[in-house]
Amino acid sequence: MMPNGAKAIVIGASAGAVQALSQILPRLPATYPLPVVIVVHVPADPSGLVALFASKCAIRVREPDDKEPIESACVYFAPPGYHMLVEDDRTIALSLDEPVLYSRPSIDVLFQSAADSYGEGLIGVMLTGANEDGAVGSAAIIDAGGTVLVEDPEHAFADTMPRAALARCPSALTLSLDAIADRLAQVGTI
């Protein structure tokens, strides 16, 4: 079910994100074999996400600069107010293009570019959220041969985002937060 050739993980979350990510990110070891690239919709600048999760996590947590190389064993949070994309040479590209679905950073923008770059080696994770951002991006990941995991809408803090993703991606896996954390923690260890 989970590809052994996984190269990167992308995660999208909105309302309720901090709680949901708190169940996942602390489970990843300091030597985690993949990069984890995350878009959370946050109004505030600075977002405080890096400080918050750095204190809870073994894995390194960063808010990247433009052109920063994407490395394994590191979590990257999109800087507030910027879209974050993955370049073909596996570096971070930031953009100030218009918000998508009122959001910048946008989950769709990250997922689409990461799907272009990583293809079947990409695992996308859609968590709680109250808008439909990420549904189109999830479909792009599936189209490129990647895998999409979606938080069970029945138990999500806000179910709009996971439901929208599932509606666009019938082949996505619906899992509890715990099960998502298990899967991600196991990637690369098998």
């Binding site: 994309l85 689409q112 570019s113 272009d116």
Partner: peptide
């Protein structure tokens, strides 16, 4: 940067 150009 190719990722943004592609999107645009």
């Amino acid at each position: 940067a190719r990722a943004s150009i592609r999107r645009r």
